[in-house]
């Protein structure tokens, strides 16, 4: 096959490689999760049947769950089913894993989405202000320092104490019903979830904007009489967007992992809380499915960042 050496060809190859790499990552991760759980100490059978079960009952159960087959065989079986959208049955609740995960996924998705919006809008917004003016920088670095230094659970408790208990503006726990009610229930958790990463994104944005505004090409544009607003959009922010988007993407990926803790603290019934419950009850089919969802979310976000970088930086497009 003849290689296409135009920039567009290089970009297309790069995109194809990025997407293929993402697929490979998910596949590898699925095996690692599967094998890791199989090797983990503790036995789902004792969890299911209790410590007093007879050896015979245990053996029966092992056979029914297919736990005696070789690992690779079990993985292949699980993968085939999973690719058809069937993640098996929960060992504890006897429900389809997909039925268990589906509604909780919507809750978690909303929570992470709200937190991501806060990280991106407030984090980047504060960062731009901080990067552009001296006084702004002082205010922003104070806020950022606070956001990074205060541990998430302390912030969460403070938020609950002030806005839920004292002021009564928000509920203290639960996930709500209907979109608006859910948004209302998830506001405090989303704020708690976004603080650390929001601070990180602000800080990085401020640094990137400050650095960009000192660049020679910014001076070139100013020296040609180009209005300040245009210089800001076409040069400073345009070029700061590359590192800022990378950081935001990593932050959003981090939110996916962070939601596990926050759901627990605010008693939000999402996949994070489900994961923790399932781990302690050794409900392997659920743990595998939820872990995989987290991995997929992570990989999707990081792949999007890679693709955005290709779109934003022409030099990225050229190197293949």
């Amino acid at each position: 096959m003849k290689r296409d050496h135009t920039p567009r060809g290089a970009a297309a190859r790069k995109i194809a490689a990025t997407v293929a790499g993402a697929g490979a990552t998910v596949l590898t991760a699925s095996f690692v999760i599967f094998a890791g759980l199989a090797a983990a100490p503790g036995d789902p059978v004792s969890q299911l049947l209790g410590a007093k079960a007879t050896d015979e009952a245990r053996a029966n159960m092992r056979r029914r769950l297919g736990l005696d087959d070789p690992l690779l065989e079990r993985y292949r079986h699980w993968l085939t089913e999973a690719l058809h959208g069937d993640f098996g049955i929960s060992l504890t609740s006897r429900q389809e894993v997909t039925d268990l995960v589906g509604p909780r996924l919507a809750t978690t998705f909303l929570l992470v989405g709200m937190a991501a919006l806060l990280v991106v809008v407030v984090g980047i917004g504060l960062g731009v202000v901080g990067g552009l003016s001296r006084r702004g920088r002082a205010v922003v670095s104070a806020l950022v320092g606070l956001g990074i230094a205060v541990p998430g659970f302390v912030a969460a408790n403070a938020l609950i104490g002030v806005f839920a208990v004292d002021l009564g503006w928000f509920p203290t726990y639960g996930s709500g019903h209907g979109l608006l009610d859910r948004v209302w229930h998830l506001t405090l958790p989303a704020v708690a979830l976004s603080i650390g990463y929001g601070a990180y994104v602000s800080q990085l944005t401020a640094a990137a904007v400050a650095e960009e505004s000192e660049k020679e090409y910014v001076m070139t544009a100013r020296g040609r009489g180009v209005p300040a607003g245009v210089v800001l959009r076409h040069h400073t922010l345009r070029n700061a967007a590359v590192p800022v988007l990378t950081a935001s993407g990593l932050a959003v990926a981090g939110l996916v992992a962070g939601t596990v803790v926050v759901e627990q603290m605010f008693a939000v019934d999402g996949v994070g809380a489900l994961l923790i419950r399932s781990i302690s009850s050794k409900d392997h089919p659920v743990v595998t499915a939820v872990s995989l969802i987290i991995v997929v979310a992570f990989v999707v976000v990081t792949t999007l960042i890679d693709l955005l970088q290709v779109a934003l930086d022409p030099r990225e497009r050229a190197t293949s």
Partner: peptide, 8 residues
């Protein structure tokens, strides 16, 4: 090289 924006 430094005075022309590389992304435009």
């Amino acid at each position: 090289r430094a005075h022309i924006n590389p992304t435009r």
